[in-house]
Nucleic acid binder design. Structure first.
Length: 614
DNA sequence: ACGACGCGCCAC
DNA sequence: AAACGTGGCGCGTCGT
């Protein structure tokens, strides 16, 4: 047995790496010592838990002074037995380890989740900011550096150096490093010691700040999201192959056009701006670093296209601008979406995108690998690639104007509340109050943009840019908006004043503390609205599982839930999903709009029937 | 060759 | 007085 010593926060700690069965006697007696909670961690070949060839390498179980680093292949039975003991485990980012353990050791998420406490959840509740935002960070090493031992990040760097010395990269080292490499074993053992110590530092803070109920809710939610991720979504691989060839042809055709104007690489902003200037175009906008800006907003007008890529007929289209836009779009769709789908699928052609259930500063969820929350929505082609299981249909229910409704509920502006309760179109209502009964289409657009501005914190410059109006025209409309809904402004000012004179934070109804940047206190309204909308969706997910509908759910997308149901009962299931998502929040109805899409996700985005999945 | 960072673009 | 929020990620560039 390999035995290592390591000093953590001044204490001598031991790391044990059993090499034969007889070495496990010490592990068994360690388990018998009666720790109520042990730290738990795993080391694997990478992040794509469900990809073919993925392996679980190590399982580490330990306490504040002792770590057992167990080889998953050799000691599978002993590990499973240890996990099934009636005992709690502290884990950092438990969703990942729960899924690894479920898939590769057969101990189900349902079996283990209730006994797991996640220090990443604790940390997020205490301070949701990442390091670069000025927070403590959310990674184990960052947190350990602050709460446990400032030398905690050192082994990470040491391990990267080892990977490199062995000819691996930061990425490939996890799969390639020999399992008995001393630095690797030390790193693995240390992780679980740090985790245990971090748990004992953070748990009392969560309790002292009265965040225990919220913590319990988030733990439950994370386990449900892990179950959704384990299930995954089915891909139409034949369709994706066809789509990719189309996109490749499109990209190369338009790249050839761009090349005729001297742009050999459309992703090079330097080349594109130089060529456009050479053609006599005038570029005025610049990036933060001072270069000429050639993003979509700049190129579309040059190509005589509006935001939906239809001709404006205002000028002769610049053929280079047009070619650059089209090449880039085809490349992005090919690489970021279609290509990523294929690369990340499992052996059954399913995608198990990673759902970060408690991610943003506002606790909003995110989905990565691949980013399924941000597939193009103006076109069905990408979403068409994701399909329901055989015999089932994709269904969805999205909240209607949830952020405006949350804002109304929180600020209780009388006029806004009344307008929502009356059931009239909110933007029509606003336009009428701001511009009079004969408001134009453009004026309605301005009214809508001002409403968004209230939620996002935007001012007249933004509203003017979005609507194509002058700031001079927008300013009086904003004043009229404030006069119509004085409660919104009062509420925003109240949040800001409190932050100005008190703690730089805003506290949500659910009791979540959201830190504010001192020079962006105006973001308070957006934070509390965005976070509250997220909490409503989170509660809906819990409610849907409680109602026995969890098996239908596929993905949360900020204000909607994507699900599937057998064809014959799809309508009934989605109606029930919609009903359960609904609620009344401080007197404001929060309603969702249930819809049966069809065989693919694209069915809800206008895919012609003959091109949809069968 | 790797990795950090800027730019750009996708979503809600 | 004015201030557009939250994410993920591919490519190019540049330093190591």
């Amino acid at each position: 047995m390999l035995t290592l010593s390591h000093t953590v926060a001044g204490d001598e700690c031991r790391i044990f790496f059993p090499e034969r069965r007889t070495d496990l006697a010490g592990f068994e007696s360690f388990l018998g010592e009666g720790d109520k909670l042990l730290g738990l961690d795993t080391e694997t070949t990478g992040l794509d838990i469900y990809s073919p060839g993925y392996r679980l390498r190590l399982v580490q179980i330990g306490n504040a002074r002792e770590a057992w680093v167990l080889q998953a292949d050799l000691f599978r039975d002993a590990i499973i037995r240890a996990l099934r003991q009636p005992r709690s485990f502290g884990v950092h980012n438990a969703s990942f380890d729960l899924q690894v353990i479920d898939r590769h050791l057969g101990v189900r998420i349902e079996e283990l989740a209730d006994r797991v406490l996640d220090t990443k959840i604790f940390a997020h509740l205490l301070d949701p900011r990442q390091r670069h935002e000025g927070g403590a960070g959310l990674r184990l090493k960052e947190l350990s550096e602050i709460y446990v031992d400032e030398a905690a990040p050192d082994t990470q760097e040491g391990l990267t150096a080892v990977f490199r010395s062995l000819g691996f990269t930061k990425e490939t080292g996890w799969a390639g490093v020999p399992i008995d490499n001393e630095t690797y074993v030390r790193y693995a053992g240390l992780d679980v010691i740090l985790e245990t110590r971090l748990f004992y530092e953070l748990a009392p803070l969560v309790k002292a700040l009265e965040l225990s109920d919220l913590s319990q809710f988030e733990h439950h939610l994370q386990s449900l999201l892990a179950i959704m991720q384990r299930k995954g979504v089915r891909l139409d691989v034949d369709y994706i192959d066809r789509l990719r060839s189309e996109l490749a042809v499109e990209a190369s055709d338009f790249a050839k056009v761009a090349a005729r104007y001297g742009v050999s690489n459309v992703n090079s902003t330097t080349q594109v701006s130089a060529a456009l200037v050479g053609m006599g175009e005038t570029l005025t906008e610049t990036t933060d670093s001072g270069a000429l800006k050639v993003d979509k907003a700049v190129l579309l007008p040059l190509a005589d296209l509006d935001r939906d890529w239809t001709r404006i007929e205002a000028r002769d289209p610049n053929p280079l601008a047009d070619a650059v836009l089209r090449t880039k779009r085809a490349m992005k769709w090919d690489e970021s979406y279609a290509g990523a789908f294929l690369k990340l699928r499992d052996s059954d052609d399913r995608l198990h995108a990673s759902i970060g259930g408690l991610q943003a500063r506002t606790a909003r969820m995110s989905i990565s690998r691949p980013p399924l929350q941000q597939l193009p929505s103006g076109d069905w082609k990408i979403r068409r690639a994701l399909i329901a299981d055989p015999g089932q249909l994709i269904v969805a229910s999205d909240y209607a104007q949830v952020e405006m409704r949350v804002l109304a509920a929180l600020c209780q502006d009388e006029t806004l509340v009344e307008a929502i309760l009356s059931g009239t179109d909110l933007h029509d209502f606003t336009a009428e109050r701001v511009f009079g009964p004969d408001f134009t289409k453009v004026q309605r657009k301005v009214a809508k943009a001002i409403g968004f501005g209230k939620v996002y914190g935007g001012g007249k410059t933004t509203v003017a840019r979005q609507t194509g109006q002058t700031e001079a025209a927008v300013a009086p409309a904003m004043a009229a908006y404030d006069a119509t809904f004085p409660g919104i402004k009062r509420y925003a000012q109240r949040l800001q004043r409190r932050a100005e004179y008190g703690k730089k934070e805003v506290i949500t109804v659910s009791g979540r503390h959201l830190p504010l940047d001192r020079d962006r206190l105006y973001a308070a309204t957006n934070y509390v609205v965005q976070s509250t909308a997220r909490d409503l969706l989170a509660q809906a997910i819990v409610d849907l599982f409680d109602a026995g509908l969890g098996d239908h759910l596929l993905l949360p997308v900020h204000d909607e839930i994507i699900a599937q149901a057998p064809e014959a009962e799809a309508e009934e299931v989605v109606q029930e999903i919609g009903r359960i998502m609904g609620s009344t929040f401080y007197g404001i109805p929060i309603l969702s709009d249930p819809e049966v899409y069809g065989r693919s996700w694209g069915s809800g985005y206008g895919v012609p029937a003959e091109l949809d999945a069968r």
